[in-house]
Amino acid sequence: MNAAVVRESGEPQARGTEPAERPLVVGVDGSEPSLRAADWAADEAALRGVPLRVVYASLWERYEGTALAGEHRPFEEVRADDIVGVAARRARKRHPDLDVSTAVLAEEPEYALVREGRDASALVLGTRGRSGFVEMLLGSVSLAVAAYADCPVIVLRGGHDSHVVHGAEATARRVVVGVGEAGKDSAAMRFAVAEARLRGAPLDAVRAWRCPAHESVDHPLLAGEPARLHEEQAVTTLDEALTGAPADLDLHRRTVEGPARHVLLAASEGAGLLVVGARRRPGHLGLQLGRVAHGVLHHAACPVAVVPEAE
């Protein structure tokens, strides 16, 4: 369905045209996590030198109905204007020169935000929204958007995102990138390198490896050989992924034995950003997130950037 734009401020780029600077888009819903995400997004947009676009999306018309409103605007629409207004004012207070626009869309938030991502440099979301289901470690909107968006999606995590670090302290913290099978053509690696350089932060490139149990018990005298071969293969993959990395980058290479999800969760402690890739499979209808990306989105100790990788 086509989105109904109820309120829009600023000068948004028309769909289908190529913007000079793709904005950073942040989704808000009035919850504290989403407002903290908007603050973080304002810092990130200022760092990148791109506009910030604050988006609220909800199908309130389904529940309130246009007929009930009469000549008055629906309560949810008024509330939405207040929410994006608060987020925009907070962003401008943090960065007075930042170009900030807002949009209120009468549409399911998952679809609206995925569509917004087509013209965005990145999407930023909080961990959870107003649903309040404490047993859900990651909100369904954030999970769906991370699974389907065409651009990088950054989900704020860290102590249920209540103590996400902002400003200079966040900028200086290291960026961690999980090195998968994409090698030197990895979009996740390119994104991580760019983020580390923007922040002037170290980049930790981490490749996890494992030795299948059956390979280490075939012969007692050869017990260490399979493990060594798998580790060497991990080193080779890591070197290929870092081919062409800028010489001035503060780069740290690590190969760690263990499941990739556990290795990256440990690496996220104290980091400013964790970057992982997610393959997009054309024609596939399910959530397009691998187990590693899914796991770190639920449990990482810092913001997580999920970067689409072409199949």
Rank of each mutant, 00 (worst) to 15 (best):
G70A: 14
E8K: 10
P152F: 04
D119K: 12
V145T: 06
P212R: 08
E231H: 14
H298M: 09
H252W: 07
E44H: 13
V307I: 02
E77T: 00
V145W: 10
E107H: 13
D82V: 02
R281Y: 09
A149F: 00
Y56K: 06
G200K: 14
G158F: 11
E169Y: 11
V28F: 15
P220Y: 12
V193C: 14
G65C: 15
A38Q: 12
R157F: 09
V296S: 04
E269Q: 11
V104C: 03
A87C: 11
G126D: 14
S31H: 05
P202A: 04
R62G: 15
A106I: 02
E107S: 13
A205Y: 13
V275D: 00
V155Y: 02
R90N: 10
D39N: 14
S9F: 06
V55R: 06
A3M: 09
D97L: 07
V256K: 07
A223C: 08
G158A: 02
R115V: 13
Q13T: 09
E311N: 04
G178R: 03
V296M: 02
L203D: 01
C211I: 15
V292Y: 09
L229Y: 05
G159I: 00
E169P: 03
T243G: 12
D82W: 06
E311C: 01
G200D: 07
Y63S: 08
A112T: 10
G272N: 03
A172S: 05
A144W: 07
G286M: 02
W40I: 11
P12W: 03
Y111I: 08
R190T: 05
P212L: 00
D250C: 03
S34K: 03
V78C: 12
G139R: 02
R253S: 12
G159N: 08
D81C: 10
G132C: 11
P96Y: 08
D119C: 00
L242N: 04
G27P: 11
G258N: 10
L274Q: 08
P19Q: 06
E231M: 01
L156R: 05
A147I: 14
A301Y: 15
R90D: 11
A194S: 12
E269C: 05
G27E: 12
D81A: 09
G277P: 01
Q233Y: 05
E11R: 11
A91K: 06
H299C: 01
G270W: 08
Q13P: 07
G183R: 07
Y56G: 00
E116P: 00
V193F: 06
E64Q: 13
